[in-house]
Design a protein around this nucleic acid. Structure first.
Lengths: 236, 236
DNA sequence: GCGATCCTTCGGCCGCTGCCGAAGCGTCCG
DNA sequence: CGGACGCTTCGGCAGCGGCCGAAGGATCGC
C-alpha cells in the first residue's frame, strides 16, 4: 500500500496545499486577497520574480481553479476565483506563523501602520477600523455572537437605513467572522461585510491609499460612522 | 526585492501550506481527522511509508503545532492539536480535488459505503447520518440558517432534554457548519456538534465499526433518533 | 534475561520543482 | 511604421525534500 492509492476518491489535500506551499504563489494569493484584479507583471514585481516565472505560477493557479483570469489586450488580469477561495486563504493566513524580521525603514513602517489601521480583506474591511466597526455593531445589538454569528433585527434595520438590502440567500453566509491578522480579533465578513465595504467606498467614507490595499477614513466617513455607530467605531 | 523579504511580519502562508503539501503528511492529517489519537506506526502503515519516514513527518507536524503528542511507554500517540486545526483541514479537504480511481475491490467498496453512511469527522458526526440529523434539526426549527448558522431556543431545549448542557462560551463557536465530503451538503459541527456526537456514543446510539472512523447506527440509536427527530433522521 | 515491538538517527539516493535569461509573439501608442 | 511593453515558451541549472534501509536505544511481555 502506497500513499498514492490510499483512499481513492477521497480529497487530494496535498495537491491543493502544494499550490499554496510556494512562497511566490502564496505571495500572489495574499496580494490578491485585497479583492482586486492584478496583472501578471504587477504580481511578479510584487513577489520579486521574473515575468516568465510568474507566468508559470499563474498557469498553475488558474488551471486549478483558485484564480480566474481575464485577458484584455496585452494584459492578463487575475483575481481570486470566489469568496470560498478567499476564505480558505484567510484561514490559512490567520493560522500561519509570522515572518521573521519586522520592517525597519521609515516608509516600510508607515506602510505597515496604514495597513494595520484600515485595509480591505478580500471584499470586506479589516484592520483596526474593521474590528472597531464590528465591535460597535455588536455593542449596539446588531450582531449576536451567542449562538454562532448572526445579524439581528436591529442590524437588518440599520443596514436598510443605509440603503443596503440584505443580499439574497445564496451559498455564501450573510455574516461571517474573519480573524484579523493584525488585531487578532474578529471582524465582519460574509455577504453583509462585503456590502458594507462597498457602501463605504460608494459613499466616500473611505478611499484607497495609492494603489495599495490600505484605505484611509475620510472626514465624511468619520462623521457618518460616529453618527451611526458612536465614537468608538472611528477610534483607531 | 525577493519573495523572502516581502511583507516581513506578515503571515508565512507558504510555510503552513508546505506542511500539508506532501501526500504522506496530508494522509496523516486526514486520518487524524477522526478525532482519535494514532500511534506513529499506525499512521506509517496507513500511509504506506517506513517508520523512519513517519518519524520525520511527525516531528515536523508536531514541531509546527499542527499536532500534539503524548508518549506512553514505547508508543508515540499523536492527535490534531485543536478544533481550529481540524477546521482548517476540513476546509482544505472540502475544496481539494478528488483523487482519481474509484475503489474496485469488494471490501474497498464496502468500506467506502460504510464511511459514506456514517462516520466521525474530528469530534462530530458526518456522512449521510450526520447530514440527515442536521437537516431534521433544521426542519424542526432547532437550527436557523437565515443569518449565519445559529441554535434556536427550541434547539437549546431539545439538547437539554437529552441532558446536554450548552457548552460554556469559549473561542469555539457553539454551532458551525462543516461541508460533508461525500454528501456535498453541510452537517453540524462546533461545540454542540461535538457534544451531540459524544452523547450518541455514550447512549449507545452508534458504535465504531472495527477500528475505522466509520460508525454504525444501533437499533437503540434508530429508535431514539426516530422518536426525537422523526423518521427522516435515520433514512440513510 | 530475551525476543519482539516501537521509535529514532544517520547517510545516501533521486526526482521534483522553482528560478532565470534569451528569444519570440501580440498589442498599444506615438 | 517602429519602438515599448506585456506576456509566453523553452532549455538548463541548482537545491530542496522525501524515501529507504541499517543500526541502535527504549520499553514491554514472557
Amino acid at each position: 500500500m502506497n500513499s498514492h492509492d490510499t483512499h481513492p476518491g477521497g480529497p487530494d489535500l496535498a495537491a491543493l496545499a502544494a499550490l499554496l506551499a510556494d512562497a511566490t504563489r502564496a505571495g500572489f494569493c495574499l496580494a490578491l486577497l485585497d479583492g482586486r484584479a492584478w496583472t501578471a507583471i504587477e504580481l511578479a514585481r510584487h513577489a520579486g520574480v521574473a515575468a516568465s516565472t510568474a507566468t508559470g505560477h499563474l498557469n498553475r493557479l488558474v488551471g486549478s481553479g483558485l484564480l480566474t483570469q481575464e485577458r484584455q489586450g496585452r494584459h492578463r488580469y487575475v483575481r481570486l476565483a470566489d469568496p470560498d477561495t478567499a476564505e480558505l486563504i484567510e484561514k490559512l493566513a490567520s493560522m500561519a506563523p509570522r515572518r521573521a524580521d519586522p520592517p525597519r525603514s521609515l516608509p516600510a513602517v508607515n506602510r505597515s501602520r496604514a495597513l494595520a489601521r484600515a485595509r480591505t480583506c478580500y471584499d470586506h474591511l479589516a484592520g483596526a477600523l474593521g474590528v472597531a466597526i464590528t465591535e460597535a455593531m455588536t455593542d449596539r445589538g446588531m450582531l449576536d455572537w451567542e449562538q454562532g454569528l448572526a445579524l439581528t433585527g436591529d442590524g437588518t434595520a440599520w443596514l436598510a437605513e443605509l440603503g443596503i438590502a440584505l443580499p439574497p440567500a445564496t451559498r455564501r453566509p450573510p455574516v461571517r467572522s474573519c480573524l484579523d491578522w493584525t488585531e487578532r480579533r474578529p471582524h465582519l465578513a460574509g455577504a453583509v461585510g462585503a456590502a458594507l465595504c462597498r457602501h463605504a467606498f460608494d459613499a466616500g467614507w473611505i478611499t484607497r491609499i495609492g494603489t495599495s490595499r490600505a484605505v484611509a477614513l475620510t472626514d465624511a466617513g468619520k462623521h457618518a460612522l460616529t453618527d451611526r455607530l458612536g465614537p468608538a467605531a472611528v477610534e483607531t
